[in-house]
């Protein structure tokens, strides 16, 4: 009999990272919560074995990235919904972070996973290339282009 998936352990290790990635794509905590839950539910419905925790996180992140891109393409997302006032209030006390978050959320979707994986998760370009199944040069180009866009939006160096 196959070993039962310890979903709680996987969840505790990775939910934070998956949620942040989904938020960067979808721009709202509620949508990020739904998307992150869907990603972990896929793992429950079709359990799989991972080589190690790094492999596990990479799979979840890429699955979340693909799911969010599909959500963004769906017809339902074509409606423009303003951010609720209470969500805006949560960020308004930190103006500098607020501007950066806004700029990150406005990035084209093809840059978001590279930017998130490099700047927040700390993956190297070669590791990102393996996860996303693209050449390393593509990852470097996307990071370069994303930095240029962010610099233009923020009017300064991107740290």
């Amino acid at each position: 009999m196959a070993k039962t998936l310890n979903i709680e352990a996987v969840f505790r290790r990775n939910f934070d990272a998956v949620f942040r990635l989904c938020y960067s794509y979808l721009g709202s905590p509620a949508d990020a919560e739904d998307a992150a839950q869907t990603v972990f539910a896929k793992l429950i419905d079709k359990p799989r074995t991972f080589a190690d925790e790094g492999h596990e996180r990479a799979w979840l992140i890429v699955c979340a990235s693909n799911y969010c891109k599909d959500v963004l393409k769906s017809a339902q997302r074509k409606r423009v919904v303003p951010m609720p006032a209470y969500e805006q209030a949560a960020w308004s006390s930190v103006d500098e972070i607020d501007d950066t978050i806004d700029a990150v959320l406005r990035l084209p979707s093809k840059y978001k996973d590279c930017v998130y994986l490099h700047y927040y998760e700390g993956y190297k370009t070669a590791e990102i290339a393996t996860m996303l199944n693209v050449p390393a040069s593509t990852v470097r180009n996307r990071l370069r282009d994303a930095r240029a866009l962010l610099k233009q939006a923020l009017g300064g160096d991107v740290a």
Partner: peptide, 20 residues
């Protein structure tokens, strides 16, 4: 940049709700 992502974290309520 890192700080921006750090501010996007889930609430405790959201975490427990999804886990349930």
């Amino acid at each position: 940049m890192h700080a921006a992502y750090a501010a996007m974290g889930p609430s405790d309520e959201a975490t427990e709700r999804v886990l349930a």
